[in-house]
Design a protein around this nucleic acid. Sequence first.
DNA 1: GTCTATAGTCTGATAGAC
DNA 2: GTCTATCAGACTATAGAC
Lengths: 195, 195
Amino acid sequence: MARTAGSHSADTAPRIRAAAQRLFAQHGYAAVSMRQIAAEVGVQVGALYNYTSDKQSLLFDLMVVHLEDLLDALPEPDTAAGPMQALDEFVRFHIRFHAARPEEVFIAYMELRNLSPENFAAVESLRRLYEDRLTAILDAGQARGVFRVADTRVATMAIIAMLTGVNTWFRETGRLSLSEVEAIYGDMTRRLVAG
Amino acid sequence: MARTAGSHSADTAPRIRAAAQRLFAQHGYAAVSMRQIAAEVGVQVGALYNYTSDKQSLLFDLMVVHLEDLLDALPEPDTAAGPMQALDEFVRFHIRFHAARPEEVFIAYMELRNLSPENFAAVESLRRLYEDRLTAILDAGQARGVFRVADTRVATMAIIAMLTGVNTWFRETGRLSLSEVEAIYGDMTRRLVAG
DNA sequence: GTCTATAGTCTGATAGAC
DNA sequence: GTCTATCAGACTATAGAC
């Protein structure tokens, strides 16, 4: 595959993605200029528009890929194992996945209002699919009498908020290891829903 | 008290505050211009600088006043009543206070990275004081054997994240009333820490 | 206290050379 | 595919008239 004249690097596209992600997470979408992104990549601003139609779709792509990765990576519950183990697996997965991607998570939560209405709707429906996976676990546990929850939808929102909150304070170099944190949150979540 | 020549309204200051709060919450600090704020108030942009030294201190003031109000409004635990009741009161207070101030809460969480380093430190120390109030309740309950928590600091962060998350989905016109929500979260929190 | 005018800089996006 | 140059407008903050 011959390079087009003037092409200096075959992987400009992922480098633009990475630069946008880093800068959006650090300064916020609205505060970052296309020129800043170009400088981080090492190209001039005009070159960015070979890879993205505009700044908005740079943000939208980051969010969609993140949420699609999240949905793809979430393990299917082992129906033979029961709801309690499914819940435990969800908790550990959520914490591990989110701790590994602090920038993506930050952007996905903080920049929702900078999406166009259509893009916002698309992102929200992906997020809703993820929430539904936890609600299904809670409903199954409730039906079998393993869980006793006043409202599975409210419990879903409560648990996800609690788990995602880990990203606001957890540091690799901190007092607790990630697996200790997983264990503590696993315990808290079990107690939250136990029948 | 005579009006200065050219003064059209004695309460321009609070109207600037209100406009900044509304616009920052809706569009984000970085996306809002001083001209937009001035237009919302009904003055020209130059007039704003009679009331604020710059855009940054507009944001900082909103956050500080919000957090000071929060700390002032938080009831002192009734030491005779015991930790379980203190926890319940904290939960209900937190949900009620935050539900009543969605804009302030949104700004206080989303715009931290737009604070200057000194302003960020000041805001973080106020937030820390609030967190400490919950940690103290958990420590007291732990000491008396009423609570059984693996780590009171982690439980503090988990509970506050869970409670604050209510603001992302609760609507006055929704399926549940605010007092129903308070009751559900009160129950979940008790189970989270129960000994 | 509010106005208008302005300084100096930055913005997203495009056109056309190479 | 990347570059330079450019458009048309917006930005924060200030100065000085009233």
